[in-house]
């Protein structure tokens, strides 16, 4: 192992269910390998730490060209017509489908994953500008979010870190 402590910082800017997982999976792998992990939540990414939103992240089928009907058992790569994706109920269907797949694979929920990361030593921060814009307070966030910080603070605290924007 190199003498210098390896550090990784993730910037989570998306609140869709499928975009919540990359930082959680990689962050957990990083902790397991002895790498320091900092996660900065900004804009829609704050849904991942918002108490009221964390258990209700969704994946909409509209404008998602990769989501095919084979996920629902239809053979081949048949697309979901966009107008169908816009029907009420389609987003909850896609969301419950994804949640079920994750559960079957033994993948924790976003809430549980974040708790594991915090227990493993990951440091979580919320973005000040986004917090102000959405009218949120620190109380709105799950335990483990250390502070609300500015972009400049984030730059200071991630000196020497590899930064991954999601």
């Amino acid at each position: 192992m190199a003498d210098e402590q390896r550090k990784i910082a993730f910037i989570c800017s998306k609140g869709n269910l499928d975009m919540a997982y990359p930082a959680l999976v990689m962050g957990w792998a990083a902790l397991g390998n002895g790498i320091d992990v900092t996660i900065f939540f900004t804009f829609w990414g704050m849904d991942m730490i918002n108490k009221a939103r964390i258990d209700h992240l969704e994946i909409p089928p509209v404008a998602n060209a990769s989501m095919k009907m084979n996920m629902m058992g239809v053979p081949g790569y048949v697309g979901i017509p966009q107008f169908l994706g816009a029907f009420p109920g389609m987003t909850p269907i896609a969301t419950s489908l994804m949640n079920k797949k994750m559960k079957d694979l033994g993948v924790p929920t976003v809430r549980e994953y974040l708790e594991m990361l915090v227990d493993g030593g990951a440091k979580l921060y919320a973005c000040k500008m986004s917090v102000d814009m959405f009218g949120l307070k620190k109380d709105d966030f799950v335990d483990g979010v250390i502070d609300i910080v500015t972009a400049g603070d984030f730059m200071d605290m991630t000196e020497g870190a590899q930064i991954i924007f999601i």
């Binding site: 792998a29 902790l31 397991g32 390998n33 002895g34 790498i35 708790e115 594991m116 227990d119 493993g120 030593g121």
Partner: peptide, 22 residues
């Protein structure tokens, strides 16, 4: 952690800096 009942916190404290490999 799920199988042995050892918590994530304890696991990282027992095998600091990279419990997966250690």
């Amino acid at each position: 952690t799920t199988g042995s009942g050892v918590s994530t916190k304890d696991l990282f404290a027992l095998f600091p800096k990279g419990p997966a490999k250690k």
